[in-house]
Amino acid sequence: MNITTAGLTRAAAAAAVLSGAIFIAVQIKHPPMAAASAETMQWVVRSCAKAVMAALAVAGITGMYLRQHRRTGLLGLAGYLVFAAGYLAMFSVEVIAAAVLPSLTGTEPGYVNDVLVSAAGGAPAGDIGGMQTVLSLSGFGYIAGGLLFGIALFRARVLARWAAALLALGTVATAALAVLPEAFNRPLAVPVGVALIGLGVSLWRNHRESSAETVRTGPARVHAVR
């Protein structure tokens, strides 16, 4: 199997689109963030889907960064690293949500509820230990990384600027969940999903157009050198 830069770029673009689509899909009729929900099969399936979404997002933003790293500079590097770290932490959270929390609902429902309250941006009533650190890292990486990375993409003028702006605004808006009711949790996720889809499509088109331009100008350049 021949692995090429073009193939990796297309794969990253597809990963970003799939990540955004999954992120939107899992918000539809999402069960309440409560211990009673965590013991259902629907919860496990959604949490697994979110873990896949986070992994695909890392692949997608990696392709975006590598496509334009010279234009984004240090801001792009910082944004990419923080954003990727946030998604990796999110991946860990969703694996725990799918594999660990359901088994604790019968014996430690209070702990499960506190974890879910914290995950939704609220203040837990009790001590949830290391999970608080993981959730905090995930939230910080998602919000700060999304803002920095979105600004860097917007300034680079390589991918769709509307999608880059939506990514920055959508991730920052998530910080408002600390003071907003849980009902706002789902709608605030949709703009980021749309942004990832837009950036993925833009990455695919940008690479295809650049490849076509290289094919058109390549022979002329060679002839001029001769």
Rank of each mutant, 00 (worst) to 15 (best):
T4V: 06
A6D: 15
G7W: 02
A11T: 10
A15I: 08
A21W: 08
I22E: 09
I22R: 03
I24T: 03
A25V: 05
I28L: 07
K29Q: 14
H30E: 11
H30A: 11
P32Q: 04
P32S: 04
M33W: 15
E39W: 08
Q42H: 12
Q42W: 13
Q42R: 11
W43H: 05
V44F: 12
V44W: 08
V45W: 15
V45Y: 12
S47A: 14
C48L: 13
V52P: 00
A54K: 03
A54M: 13
A57G: 10
G60L: 03
G60P: 02
I61G: 01
I61S: 01
G63N: 04
M64G: 07
Y65C: 01
Q68W: 05
H69C: 10
H69P: 03
R71P: 00
G73C: 05
G73Y: 00
L74M: 12
L75F: 01
G79T: 02
V82G: 07
L88S: 05
L88C: 09
F91E: 07
V95N: 03
A98W: 02
A99D: 07
V100N: 06
T105Y: 04
G106V: 09
G106W: 13
G106H: 14
P109K: 04
G110K: 11
Y111P: 01
Y111K: 05
D114F: 08
V115S: 02
A120T: 05
G121T: 09
G122P: 09
A123S: 14
A123I: 15
P124H: 14
A125D: 12
A125R: 13
G130S: 09
M131W: 15
Q132C: 00
Q132H: 14
T133W: 13
T133A: 15
V134Q: 08
V134E: 03
L135C: 06
L135P: 04
L137H: 05
G139W: 11
F140S: 04
F140A: 06
Y142E: 04
G145E: 03
L147D: 02
L147G: 03
L148F: 12
F149G: 00
I151H: 09
I151D: 03
A152R: 07
A152Y: 07
A152M: 09
A156M: 10
R157V: 07
L159G: 00
A160P: 00
A163Q: 08
A165E: 05
L166E: 06
L166N: 04
L169H: 07
L169W: 15
T171H: 06
V172F: 09
V172M: 13
T174P: 01
A175P: 13
A176K: 03
L177C: 04
A178T: 04
L180E: 04
P181C: 09
E182K: 12
E182V: 07
N185I: 08
L188S: 02
A189R: 12
V192W: 02
V192Q: 10
G193L: 01
V194D: 04
A195F: 00
I197K: 01
G198W: 00
L199D: 08
W204G: 01
N206Y: 13
N206F: 12
H207S: 10
H207Y: 11
R208W: 11
S211W: 10
S211H: 15
G218D: 07
P219H: 01
P219A: 05
A220V: 13
A220Y: 14
R221S: 11
V222C: 03
V225Q: 11
V225A: 15
V225K: 10
R226C: 08
R226F: 07
